[in-house]
Nucleic acid binder design. Structure first.
Length: 132
DNA sequence: ATTCTTACA
DNA sequence: TGTAAGCA
C-alpha cells in the first residue's frame, strides 16, 4: 500500500499537467475550486499535482467530453469515494464480526444491523447532470 | 519565465 | 471558459 503514497506525492507544476491532460490552466483551477481536486502548494503558493490529481483530472475530462456537467462529475466522484469508503467499512465490519460473533454465540443473541438504503438515480433526474 | 488571484466579458 | 491586469 506504499504505492498510494507515491501516487499522492506532489510532483508536477501546472505546465506539466496541462500537457498531460490537455486541459487549460483555467479549467484545472476551476475544477479545484469545485473541490474535485486538492493539489498541494509550494512555499510560493504554486500548485503541485500528484499522479492521483492527474488521474482524477483525466476522469473529469472524460466525463465532461461525454457531456456531463460539473454537478454530474461531482456526483460520480463522490460516488466512487463513497464506494471506497464502503469497501473499507465492509472489511472493518468483517473483523468486528469475528469478535462479536463470539459474544453472540455465548449469549445466544441475534443482532441484525440495518442501514438506510442509498439514493438511487431516477432516469428523469439524470438529465439534471447534462448540458442542454 | 511561470503561476496565482481576481474580475469582467 | 477565455482573457487581462497586477503580483509573487
Amino acid at each position: 500500500m506504499r504505492d498510494q503514497i507515491r501516487r499522492n506525492m506532489p510532483l508536477f507544476p501546472m505546465r506539466i499537467v496541462t500537457k498531460l491532460t490537455e486541459l487549460t490552466p483555467r479549467q484545472i483551477r476551476y475544477y479545484e475550486q469545485q473541490g474535485l481536486i486538492s493539489p498541494s502548494r509550494t512555499s510560493g503558493n504554486q500548485r503541485l499535482f500528484s499522479f492521483n490529481d492527474v488521474d482524477r483530472l483525466l476522469e473529469i475530462k472524460s466525463l465532461m467530453e461525454k457531456g456531463v456537467n460539473i454537478a454530474g462529475v461531482k456526483e460520480v466522484l463522490l460516488k466512487s469515494q463513497q464506494v471506497l469508503e464502503a469497501k473499507k467499512e465492509v472489511e472493518k465490519v468483517k473483523q468486528e464480526m469475528s469478535e462479536q460473533e463470539l459474544r453472540r454465540m455465548l449469549k445466544q443473541q441475534l443482532i441484525i444491523p440495518s442501514r438506510p438504503g442509498q439514493t438511487h438515480l431516477i432516469h428523469g433526474e439524470l438529465s439534471r447532470f447534462f448540458r442542454h
